[in-house]
Amino acid sequence: MKVIFLQDVKGKGKKGEIKNVPDGYARNFLFKKGLAVEATPANLKELE
């Protein structure tokens, strides 16, 4: 799953980066803790 990092995550990505991460990791950790959002067209547009 492609995500946009909202904060630096040690060993995974830095704020503003767009990266592919495993689905479970994204849903169960990154999204729940507010560290990233899914890289949807709407979210990508907001990032610009």
Results as ranks from 00 to 15, higher is better:
Lys33Pro: 01
Thr40Tyr: 06
Pro41Asn: 09
Lys10Glu: 14
Pro41Ala: 14
Lys33Met: 15
Phe31Val: 06
Ala36Asn: 00
Val37Ala: 08
Val21Gly: 01
Lys33Tyr: 15
Glu38Pro: 13
Asp23Thr: 14
Leu47Trp: 14
Lys14Gly: 05
Ala26Trp: 09
Glu46Ala: 15
Ala42Trp: 08
Val21Thr: 02
Arg27Gly: 02
Glu46Asn: 12
Glu17His: 05
Val21Tyr: 05
Met1His: 04
Gln7His: 13
Val21Asp: 01
Met1Thr: 12
Lys32Thr: 10
Leu35Lys: 03
Lys15Trp: 04
Lys14Arg: 13
Val9Arg: 01
Ala36Leu: 02
Arg27His: 09
Asp8Pro: 05
Val21His: 01
Arg27Asp: 03
Arg27Ala: 06
Glu17Val: 04
Phe5Thr: 01
Val9Gln: 01
Val21Trp: 03
Asn28Leu: 12
Lys14Val: 10
Glu46Phe: 14
Lys32Gly: 06
Gly34Val: 04
Glu46Asp: 13
Gly13Arg: 01
Ala42Leu: 11
Asp23Trp: 15
Phe29Val: 12
Ala42Ser: 12
Gly16Ser: 05
Pro22Val: 07
Ile18Val: 13
Leu35Ala: 03
Glu46Val: 14
Gly13Val: 05
Asn43Gly: 05
Asp23Gly: 13
Ala36Thr: 01
Ile18His: 03
Lys14Leu: 12
Lys10Gln: 12
Leu30Asn: 00
Lys10Ser: 11
Lys2Val: 14
Ile18Leu: 08
Asp8Ser: 09
Ala36Asp: 00
Pro41Tyr: 12
Lys15Ser: 07
Lys19Leu: 14
Leu47His: 10
Ala42Thr: 11
Phe5His: 00
Leu6Asn: 02
Ala39Phe: 12
Asp8Phe: 09
Tyr25Glu: 06
Gln7Phe: 14
Gly11Pro: 04
Thr40Met: 05
Lys32Phe: 08
Leu35Asp: 01
Ile4Met: 09
Ile4Trp: 04
Gly13Trp: 13
Leu35Pro: 01
Pro41Gly: 08
Gly16His: 08
Lys32Glu: 08
Lys12Leu: 15
Ala36Tyr: 00
Lys2Pro: 08
Lys15His: 05
Arg27Asn: 07
Val3Thr: 01
Ile4Val: 08
Ala26Lys: 02
Lys19Gly: 08
Phe5Leu: 07
Ala26Met: 06
Leu30Ala: 00
Ala39Asn: 03
Gly16Met: 05
Tyr25Phe: 11
Leu30Val: 00
Asn28Val: 07
Ala42Lys: 12
Ala39Ile: 05
Lys19His: 11
Pro41Lys: 10
Val37Met: 11
Lys19Pro: 00
Val37Asp: 02
Lys32Tyr: 08
Leu6His: 02
Gly34Thr: 03
Gly11Gln: 05
Lys15Ala: 10
Ala26Thr: 07
Phe31Gly: 01
Lys12Pro: 01
Phe29Gln: 06
Glu48Gln: 14
Thr40Gln: 04
Lys33Ala: 11
Gly24Arg: 14
Pro22Phe: 08
Gln7Ala: 14
Asp8Arg: 05
Asn28Ile: 08
Ala39Arg: 02
Gly11Arg: 06
Met1Lys: 07
Pro41Ser: 12
Lys45Gly: 09
Val9Trp: 04
Met1Asn: 03
Gly13Ser: 04
Tyr25Met: 06
Val3Gly: 00
Phe29Tyr: 15
Phe29Met: 07
Ala39Asp: 03
Lys32Arg: 12
Glu38Gly: 04
Pro22Arg: 09
Val21Ile: 07
Asn43Val: 12
Phe29Asn: 05
Glu38Met: 10
Gly16Pro: 00
Lys33Asn: 14
Leu47Ala: 09
Lys10His: 11
Ala39Gln: 03
Gly24His: 14
Phe31Ser: 02
Ala42Met: 09
Ala42His: 13
Leu44Lys: 05
Phe5Asn: 00
Leu47Thr: 07
Ala26Leu: 08
Asp23Asn: 13
Lys15Gln: 09
Gly34Gln: 09
Lys14Glu: 06
Asn43Leu: 12
Ala36Ile: 06
